[in-house]
């Protein structure tokens, strides 16, 4: 734990224990999403599925990066990951992004993907709101993750026919916003 770091946050009035629990729940959501997206990605096959595979893969890798980026902040603030992987899965901030009953139903696949991203967008918006102007480092991290989650939502939303995303696929490295926390 970074003792002074935690003290500084506590002095702003943030309930650090609650904040840490939120970060752990969101870290659980990222890692479980990485896992479930792996299954979704391998099932994105055929003429329609192949078109989605690349963005699903990018979102999958970036969600894993989000997990990696969140873990140090959890420990800095005095938290820790659960010893039990199953307990970690079950405390996720978002529902499991499970494979739809019919994996060939591309709309159902997209719905799972976009709902997972929307849950993440709400979650990080919430953390940003809690920490803005108070816990600068958690805010910076959450905002970086939020930027990427918003882009993920946009990609999938566009495929669902909800309108243009205004974005283009990554050109080059993944995690343009979060990568500074991974170095």
């Amino acid at each position: 734990m970074a003792k002074v770091t935690r003290e500084m946050v506590e002095k702003t009035g943030v309930n650090v224990d609650q904040l840490v629990e939120l970060l752990i729940k969101n870290a659980a959501a990222e890692l479980t999403t990485f896992y479930y997206y792996t299954i979704l990605r391998v099932n994105l096959i055929g003429l329609e599925g192949e078109g989605l595979k690349e963005i699903a893969e990018t979102a999958r890798i970036e969600d894993r990066n989000h997990f990696e980026a969140l873990v140090p902040r959890i420990y800095e603030l005095g938290g820790k990951l659960p010893d039990d992987m199953k307990a970690f899965h079950d405390m996720s901030a978002c529902p499991p992004a499970r494979l739809p009953k019919d994996p060939t139903d591309i709309k159902a696949m997209l719905t799972v993907l976009v709902e997972a991203e929307r849950c993440a967008v709400r979650g990080y918006t919430h953390i940003c709101n809690l920490t803005a102007g108070k816990d600068h480092r958690t805010y910076d991290l959450s905002q970086a993750i939020l930027n990427e989650e918003i882009e993920h939502e946009s990609w999938f939303s566009e495929f669902l026919g909800e309108g243009p995303s205004g974005h283009f696929l990554r050109r080059g490295d993944t995690s343009p916003f979060v990568s500074k926390f991974l170095r």
């Binding site: 609650q18 629990e21 919430h126």
Partner: peptide, 20 residues
Amino acid sequence: HQVLHQAGMDLTECMAEAPH
């Protein structure tokens, strides 16, 4: 719910700060 909210309560006043 999201660490902060407990069932069995009136949460009317919490909605203003919720991300939904």
